[in-house]
């Protein structure tokens, strides 16, 4: 891995953030909401409204507003929430940390289930076990998160009463209670990814199993165990990194819905709240934070892949 390649990747992350910031700013500018009215209420005098507009720079040309917003955002200042009056940045960072916990646990659970499942299905290709897992994963990818979440809620929280239905408890307060509250959200977010990733692991493994070098390994009389562990696994699991990186997009989308359903105050719920309240600075900050998270995650995956797969040429 050359430094040139690394620099290029970092440059692309920066460019992505720039494009996303323009897009987010442009979309939120179209919002049919007057920030001054949102801030002061419907009954404010025209003079007061004009003064606030002046203070917020709402009379400046749009590109100048963008420039002010971007330069401030780069120093970590996303302005104050119109809803609570609090600075947006710390609020979003706290929310992000909760969402990252949810995302991380979901990815871990997903990997723990999807990889063995995909391998198992591939090794039993065409047999009952393969067909059953294939059918289940079909259902998994075809149910939107809110349906999965609702079904899990009905079964695990309502009928069986095994788990608390909604709410959030910080891990520092009561660790086990906190985890219990996270089980349903994590399960929901994982389901769709397990279904998707296990299908990909299956097809990657089947490709590897049919490759010349696996045939060669078998014809060299190597033990089946070592063919599987040393030759098949390594080659079949490398592409999974890329697949998981691509799924981070779905993951973030899923988190928005899941946090809303389970009343988990993460970045997704903050965004929904902001959108409902037309809280411009919060929407902008939330969307940008999410996009940056995605860009960083996929870049990290690229780097991990590059470190693990020596074949990639960086030219």
């Amino acid at each position: 891995m050359s430094t040139g390649w690394l620099l290029r990747r970092l440059f692309l992350v920066a460019y992505t953030v720039l494009v996303v910031s323009v897009l987010v700013f442009a979309i939120t500018q179209v919002l049919p909401a007057d920030a001054a009215v949102t801030l002061l209420g419907e009954n404010a005098t025209p003079e007061a409204l004009a003064a606030v507009r002046d203070r917020l720079g709402l009379n400046d040309p749009i590109w100048l507003q963008y420039w002010h917003w971007l330069t401030a955002a780069l120093t970590g200042d996303f302005g104050h929430s119109m809803r609570t009056g609090q600075p947006v940045a710390p609020m979003m960072l706290t929310a992000l940390s909760r969402s990252l916990l949810l995302a991380l646990l979901s990815i871990l659970l997903m990997l723990a289930v999807a990889v063995p499942l995909g391998l198992w299905a591939a090794l039993r290709q065409g047999k009952a076990a393969d067909l059953v897992t294939g059918f289940i994963s079909y259902i998994g990818v075809s149910l939107p998160e809110f349906v999965t979440a609702t079904l899990l809620l009905i079964v695990l929280a309502d009928w069986l009463q095994w788990l608390p239905a909604t709410g959030y408890v910080p891990p520092g307060e009561d660790f086990w209670d906190s985890m219990a509250h996270l089980v349903l959200p994590v399960l929901t977010v994982s389901v769709i990814m397990v279904a998707h990733v296990s299908r990909m692991v299956r097809s990657e493994t089947i490709d590897v199993l049919h490759s010349d070098y696996i045939r060669a390994a078998r014809l060299k009389g190597l033990a089946p165990r070592s063919v599987l562990l040393r030759h098949v696994l390594r080659n079949a699991l490398l592409p999974v990194i890329t697949i998981v990186a691509l799924d981070v997009g779905y993951l973030l989308g899923g988190i928005i819905v899941v946090e809303e359903i389970f009343a988990l105050p993460g970045i997704g719920r903050q965004l929904i709240v902001a959108i409902t309240a037309r809280d411009l600075p919060a929407i902008q900050a939330g969307a940008l934070v999410m996009a940056v998270t995605y860009a960083v995650a996929s870049t990290l995956a690229d780097i991990a892949y590059a470190l693990l797969d020596r074949r990639i040429r960086y030219d």
Binding site: D212, I214, A216, R234, N235, L238
Partner: peptide, 18 residues
């Protein structure tokens, strides 16, 4: 591999790339 060895057509696909 022990009593019968084999040499394959394309060495670039017959060796494990990783």
């Amino acid at each position: 591999g022990k009593r019968i060895g084999m040499v394959f057509q394309d060495p670039s696909t017959a060796l494990n790339p990783t």
